[in-house]
């Protein structure tokens, strides 16, 4: 048995437990938990049975199993970046609102400095 087929499943199990705890402590939605759990289950599957990737690859018309894994990896990463970008954008908007409100409710007067 190759080293990666031992290490990757261990990492995956730890990751699944981490996501389950996040879900149980209401820090994550059920949909996100299912999505990530599925992803890590696939990592376990492909680590223990590398040939399985070729079956999935052929479903999408890709010849090599490794190519399929790399492409899926790219897609997942792009999706994560897109989500993060949107969240960051929303956070920026929220920060702008707060900073603006604080400024508007505190006009600086000469008395402020003298205090």
């Amino acid at each position: 048995m190759l080293l990666y087929s031992i290490i990757f499943p261990i990492i995956s199990v730890v990751a699944i437990i981490f996501f389950l705890i996040r879900y149980l402590t209401e820090r994550q939605s059920l949909a996100t938990t299912i999505l990530w759990t599925l992803l890590w289950l696939f990592v376990i599957l492909f680590s223990i049975f590398p040939d399985a990737s070729e079956r999935f690859a052929s479903l999408f018309g890709i010849t090599r199993g490794l190519d399929f894994i790399i492409i899926v990896g790219f897609v997942v990463l792009l999706y994560v970046i897109f989500r993060l970008y949107n969240k960051l954008d929303k956070l920026q908007d929220d920060v702008n609102k707060v900073v603006k409100e604080i400024a508007l409710s505190n006009e600086i007067s000469l008395d402020d400095e003298e205090e």
Binding site: V95, N96, V99, K100, I102, A103, L104, N106, E107
Partner: peptide, 15 residues
């Protein structure tokens, strides 16, 4: 009026 952190000319002008 003073923004507590730098938010750029757009936000400063809106303020």
């Amino acid at each position: 009026y003073s923004l507590i952190i730098n938010r750029g000319v757009g936000v400063a002008t809106q303020t």
